[in-house]
Write a protein that binds this DNA or RNA. Structure first.
Lengths: 332, 332
DNA sequence: TGGGGTGACTAGAACGATCTAGATTCCCCA
DNA sequence: TGGGGAATCTAGATCGTTCTAGTCACCCCA
């Protein structure tokens, strides 16, 4: 139906309230310089007309747009949790968020470009796959915060979780349960797969255990596929690249007649929705999405408002122990 | 670092190319009225300066924003597929998409409001939970298309999948396999739970079978919980509200020592990523996300460009048979 | 030669807000 | 009485575009 009722402008409100445009502007953004009585009068008139400020015009004029651009991968549930938390963080700081999804058919670069066109003052890129020099290029225009990835060069801020510590927690937990034959199903070429793999090797060697790594990937299918190789290793415990990988691994183990955790313990990474499902109850390394997302918002806002924040924030993850890990069988 | 290099404007390009602002504008949007030679010259200058039109200003001036607002629920993977497809559809029609996620902490109404503030010309709401009169209210301002929900009143267009047909397909498939004790684990209060439930009852009765419905919900946990009641019914087949519900049901059956599909067949709904996982291989009713999303974009664009499109598009889903359904056991 | 037409280009007014600088009112106190 | 100063309000420029209504140069043909 959409009757093309032109939406009311400052002018309309001003006319209705019998004051000037500028004064209405002052009232609308809560700036000082209006008496309480006219403030009421103006607000009433605005309410009456159903006035809403046109953010395009507003943002055009004041170089401040109060818009944060967030790009995320739509197929990744953990990103969803981060986005969720980012909304909250931004709101409490008086910013709004523009979203851009990276999908199979839509590259990160084009998403970032449209965020910029929309007038975002800063970018928060979740697990960006752009190359370092591309990121640096964007950082010349606006503050850029990389979330969940830290090898992004000096020009780009980053907020990430300490992958080394996370993997150490996982290995430590399993070792404390008496496991010795621990295998890592890695993330293949995914972001942060490399550091996790490296730290796994390091930590295992530090403990005098033989590090075994099997190529995997970030999805269930990858974990499942890895099980073919995994079985040859006869491990008593598996550290998976992330929760989805872990789910795939568990499925593969189950198909092979192995019980979790009686025969094999499994640790995931992300502590995502999946890990928390009542029938999964996956022991997992939690990166604490809300804290990470809020930290990213803080860094971005900090840059914008002039304080020079630390360039690279690294948070320490913690382990959430559920039911997929148990002491190693006494007779291996 | 973000050196605050003011971004170049039409003026800058005009100065660099030695022409007027207006001419640059003409060239940039490919309008007629510029000679080939100056066109080249201008494009070169723009390229040189790294000029990108400021969409805020552009959109402020021309009432057309070419922006479609899409709201979706971030926790719902099927929505992700729709968003993905919507991006493609919009792009091919020369529109851009602004996203708004509905999360636990962010209501649909506030999301819609910010889409409107951003200047979206039309809204595509995926499974909106707003009340009919609220929707109608928005529809007075811009064209609104409800995706996946069709009881939205006359003022709002809708694109949905024929839930009745979908449920019929599922029941028909199971009946053809010889199943008689078929139970529906419903979606509780979720959008489209009611029509699916009703059609299940109708279709079962039409076939002279006794319709059994067990309260469920849209998530794995709901399906799992439903299994407690389900076992009392001893069904040979289950039609679940959606794929996630089906996953929960299958998990519950497995925990009870029942095999799928040998003991119980299970049909899901949505044909989502989950259904396609190699170790799930869930038989599911496919609503065909790309088609639905593109239809929604078509309707929205149609409204905007003046053609009066059909108000309510309903697409017929189809069944994707995988490995979770099998003939009913010969000895029940 | 000169009038009409066309193609290439430009000046200046929008769009709807913000912001600066100045005007007006009112109060208080010397 | 009158002037300083705070509080309140307004006019007008401005942001970076698009768009309308021109201007200007050039060509063609009567």
């Amino acid at each position: 139906m959409a009757e093309q009722h032109r939406r009311p402008t400052l002018m309309d409100v001003a006319a209705a309230a019998g004051v000037s445009r500028a004064l209405v502007s002052i009232v609308m953004r809560g700036a000082p310089g209006a008496s309480e009585s006219t403030r009421q009068k103006v607000l009433e008139a605005a309410e009456q007309l159903g006035y809403r400020p046109d953010s395009r015009a507003r943002l055009l004029r004041s170089s401040r747009t109060k818009l944060l651009g967030v790009s995320f991968s739509i197929s990744h549930p953990f990103h969803a949790e981060l986005v969720d938390a980012a909304y909250g963080g931004a709101e409490s700081r008086g910013y709004d968020i523009a979203l851009s999804a990276v999908t199979s058919g839509r590259s990160e670069a084009s998403g970032v470009q449209s965020l910029l066109d929309l007038g975002c003052e800063a970018l928060i890129l979740i697990s960006p796959t752009l190359k370092e020099d591309e990121l640096t290029g964007y950082a010349r225009r606006v503050p850029v915060v990389s979330l969940l990835r830290d090898d992004v060069g000096q020009a780009v801020d980053s907020v990430s979780s300490d992958d080394h510590a996370g993997i150490r927690l996982a290995v430590e937990h399993l070792a404390a349960l008496g496991h010795q034959k621990i295998v890592h199903v890695d993330g293949g070429t995914a972001v942060s797969a490399a550091p996790r793999r490296a730290e796994f090797n390091r930590e295992m060697e530090r403990r005098g255990l033989e590090p075994r790594v099997i190529p995997g990937g970030p999805y269930e299918e990858d974990g499942l596929r890895a099980c073919e190789l995994l079985r040859a290793e006869c491990p008593t415990a598996v550290v998976a690249f992330n929760d989805r990988t872990a789910l795939g691994v568990m499925e593969g183990l189950r198909a092979a007649g192995l019980r979790v955790p009686a025969d094999v313990s499994v640790v995931g990474y992300d502590d995502s929705q999946f890990a928390r499902l009542s029938y999964v109850q996956l022991t997992s390394v939690s990166q604490d999405a809300p804290l990470l997302a809020e930290a990213a918002v803080d860094v971005a806002v900090g840059r914008l408002e002039g304080e020079q924040p630390p360039s690279h924030v690294i948070r320490t993850p913690h382990l959430v122990v559920r039911t997929t890990t148990a002491p190693a069988a006494t007779n291996p």
